[in-house]
Every structure is written in C-alpha cells, then in structure tokens.
Write a protein that binds this DNA or RNA. Structure first.
Lengths: 172, 172
DNA sequence: ATCCGCATGTAAGTGGTTACATGATTCG
DNA sequence: CGAATCATGTAACCACTTACATGCGGAT
C-alpha cells in the first residue's frame, strides 16, 4: 500500500521501468523506505491492474525490452488522496537494539564487537548520505522537502554516533 | 526469527504467558520492536515445537488457564548463539518521511498538519519514554544496557523534534 | 574470456496485520 | 449496568525476502 504510493510518486516525476525504480529505492528514497525488486515488479503489476499506471514497451537497444510505466490521471488522484489521508503510524523494529537489550548474556568481547560493527555501519551510511547532500542544490519547494528527508537521516545517524560514544564509554 | 529470539530473551528473565509477553512488547521493548499478539502466540507455539520453550498450564483464579512458557536449556543455547551471530541489517521504513518526500504535491495546510501530527506523536512517545526512564534505577550490567536502549529512543526522539523545528521554520 | 550493468520476471517461504470468537472478574 | 482487564487462540490475508532463471552488450 505505502510502497504502491511511493512508486506512484516516483512515476509522477518521470516514467520508469522496475529496474529504474529499484535504483531509486537503493539511493534517493532508500534511507527511509527499502524495497526489494521482486516486490517492486509485483506492485507495479498491481498498479497497472488498478488503472493507476500504464505500460509502454520500448524496444531495448541491446538487452530486454524496457517496460516503461507511466502514472495515469487516476494514479495522480490516488497519490493525492494518500498524501492527504491520515498518516500511518511508524512501527519500530531494530534488531541491533534488541541485541543490546539482552547484551548482558554476551561476554565483553562480544559486546564490544557488537558496538564496533554498529559504529562502522552508521559511519558508512552517514558518509553516503552526506555525499548525496553535497551533490544536491535545493531550489523549489519539492527539492527542499526531499532534501529535508536526507537531513533527517543525517541528523539521526549523528545522534546514533553520539549515543554510541556514551554507551561505549560507560561499558568500558 | 528475531521475534523468536526476543521472546526467548524475555522468557530467560521470567516464565510468561503470551499475554504477559504482549504487555512487554507494548512497554519495555516496544520502542525498538513491535509485535502483534497473533504473532506472539504463533511464535510461542513454534518455540515449543523446536524445543526451546516448554508450557505449563496453571489453573486460572478466575478467567482462562494461564499457559506459562519457560525457556529450556536448548533455548538458552539458541539465544546465546543468536547474540553472538552476525547482526542483521536494519531496514528503514518510515511512512512519514515518504509523505514529506512527496510533500510538494500537498497544499500549505496539508503540509503544516502533517508536521503538526508528527510533532504531537513524537512528543507523546518522548513523554512515555522519559517517564519510563525516571522510574528506572540502573544497577548491574544488564539493567544498564536495557536503560541504554531507552536512552537511544529518547535521543532519537529529541533529534526528531529538533529537525521538525528546522523544517517547519524553513517551510513557513 | 570474464565480469558488470541492464532488464525481466516467478516460486516458495517467512513474517506481520486484521478480524473473528469466547468468557470470567473487577472497578466505577 | 457497562467497560476494562485478564487470557486464550484461529483464519485469512497482505507484505516482504530469498532463491531461481535468463540473456545481451560493453568494458577490463
């Protein structure tokens, strides 16, 4: 449902293939919504069924034909309706914090390595988002809002690093 | 899988019924792992199947009999193995940020109300976590680590409020 | 030659949500 | 008298992941 609406939102920017969409989910929108390609192809098919998107087969210069999906008028209506609807509540599911919660059952080395891996993963992701930010120049309202979601990710990653500093010091 | 391990971790603290577990998922561990009761009962049954937990029926003083689940020796081994295993990576899925990303398709009032609702939800959750924190006195390693997960939640909620301040000002 | 990027999808399985269904006790 | 809490679960559905399967063209 939400995935379908995000795909509609992306198709409203430009017509795309499932493959194109996958690249967006791995870069631009990936820091707040992850999606698998199997899921993208399935959802795309459903959007066509519902009349929210149409397909145009473009002969591929080399490789398979591109199945270009474009949003329909009905799709734009559905997208607008979703944006104006009651927001879904966000359910947290963080396996790292689950491990920390039961961390007393782990020896000192195990605990240290748990925190170290997390720190590495967070730094990695932070570097990627900061690079994306550096490559962006915000102009209109839409671009500023998209940039704001990036800043949200960056702010939370920095908070996570600060928290790790405090916890690692306390545990040591 | 992760849910099963979290349940084992909770059963390692004390034997519990599905109902008891549900209460924990709505309070202590809820800020990093949400779980539905249908899912809890199903997972509990699977843990018994796998030999990681055993059931004892306790006659209920009023109301239905309690199905008390307790962790077995094999269950403790499985829990320890999970804690020492390669950490899963956390996949983000935040519907609020998805709405912000496409927020340009929304009018000013819609956007304002989107941020206002988010702020209210975050403040609400922050108040609950801060109260939980005030009620806790950390002593041993286990308690300190459990408290650290709470502090993680609190830190991120405060970051979210700060981000909201900045974005709302920019949009206004 | 071999690997990477482009591009498509299916099948099977796991994980998570919503709705249905029941019934006693306790508190206001 | 009615609502909330305790306590159990099932059935159906929806969302997501992993593994399988294919094949061209261009770069190293």
């Amino acid at each position: 449902m939400i995935l379908g609406r995000i795909i509609l939102g992306l198709l409203a920017i430009a017509p795309m293939t499932g493959y194109d969409l996958k690249r967006h989910f791995d870069s631009t929108v990936g820091h707040f919504w992850a999606a698998d390609k199997a899921q993208i192809y399935r959802t795309l098919a459903r959007l066509v069924d519902e009349g929210y998107a149409e397909v145009e087969t473009v002969a591929g210069s080399g490789a398979p034909d591109r199945q270009e999906h474009r949003i329909t008028a009905a799709g734009r209506v559905a997208l607008a309706a979703w944006l104006a609807s009651e927001p879904e509540r966000h359910v947290e599911r963080d396996p790292f914090l689950a491990r920390v919660f039961f961390g007393a059952d782990l020896d000192d080395d195990g605990l240290r390595s748990l925190f170290a891996r997390r720190r590495a993963a967070v730094q990695d992701q932070l570097a990627r988002l900061e690079q994306m930010r550096a490559e962006t120049t915000a102009l209109d309202r839409g671009a500023r809002l998209r940039l704001a979601t990036l800043d949200n990710g960056i702010a939370h990653l920095r908070t996570e690093l600060g928290w790790l500093d405090a916890v690692e010091e306390e545990v040591a």
